[in-house]
């Protein structure tokens, strides 16, 4: 994937660029708003990682608003030290697709960027999702694995649906919290782990090949092959 990083802090930018390249992406970097806007508007990217406070007269919000005004729909992840609820709302209102506050874990950033780019591709009228021999029907809310019917609670179904929509990608606990439950706080207990392990009991336990994998220090991944 081709990713643009607009970030003025040298260390953070260097770290992000290196990490993204290691993950197999092509990365362009701009260290101010003006260059960032120029690059974003003139070239094609699969995703943009955007800081809010930037030198060069154009801050992140302005940059994104200008971009969206030109009908550019490239997915944008804000990466900002502005962490208040209002800041997040502002970022999303300006057209941001996700908002991550600094300091951040690189795994979280990577997972979110990859999730966004995938979302752009599969946002069609899908009614069926399948990973390996596991398939779900979004209309009838039915789940089958190897032809065998699996009963899920509504919330378990939504958890599975989210994981399947991001099959092959790392999904962090925060992403699940926000994507499945729409919660924007950090529970002190391992709630997400418990829910995932219950889902695993139902979809993986009776079968030979595990589909739901735990990715150390990052989150979970649903995929047919071994990680």
């Amino acid at each position: 994937m081709r990713i643009l990083v607009v970030e003025d802090d040298k260390d953070v930018a260097g770290f992000v660029v290196k990490g993204l390249r290691e993950a197999g992406h092509t990365v362009e970097h701009a260290d101010n708003g003006r260059d960032g806007l120029f690059l974003a508007a003139s070239e094609n990217f699969d995703a943009i990682i955007l800081d809010r406070m930037l030198p060069g007269g154009i801050d992140g919000l302005r940059l994104l608003e200008t971009l969206r005004a030109q009908d550019n729909v490239t997915p944008v992840v804000f990466l900002s030290a502005l962490s208040q609820v209002d800041d997040r709302v502002k970022g999303l209102k300006a057209g941001g697709d996700d908002y991550l506050t600094k300091p951040f874990a690189f795994a979280e950033l990577l997972a979110r960027v990859e999730a966004l780019t995938r979302r752009g591709k599969t946002d069609g009228p899908t009614t069926r999702l399948a990973v390996g021999d596991l398939e779900i029907d979004l209309l009838s809310r039915g789940v089958r694995r190897a032809g065998q019917k699996i009963d899920l609670q509504p919330r378990e179904f939504r958890l599975l649906e989210y994981l399947m929509r991001h099959a092959g990608q790392v999904v962090t606990r925060t992403m699940l919290l926000e994507g499945v439950w729409d919660y924007h706080f950090d529970p002190q207990t391992n709630v997400i782990d418990v829910h995932v392990s219950r889902l695993r009991q139902k979809i993986d336990k009776p079968f030979d090949l595990p589909l739901l994998h735990t990715v150390r220090n990052a989150g979970y991944m649903l995929r047919a092959e071994d990680v």
Partner: peptide
């Protein structure tokens, strides 16, 4: 109810 369901498992 949602929160109850969220924490019930734990």
């Amino acid at each position: 109810s949602d929160i109850d369901e969220f924490y019930h498992a734990v």
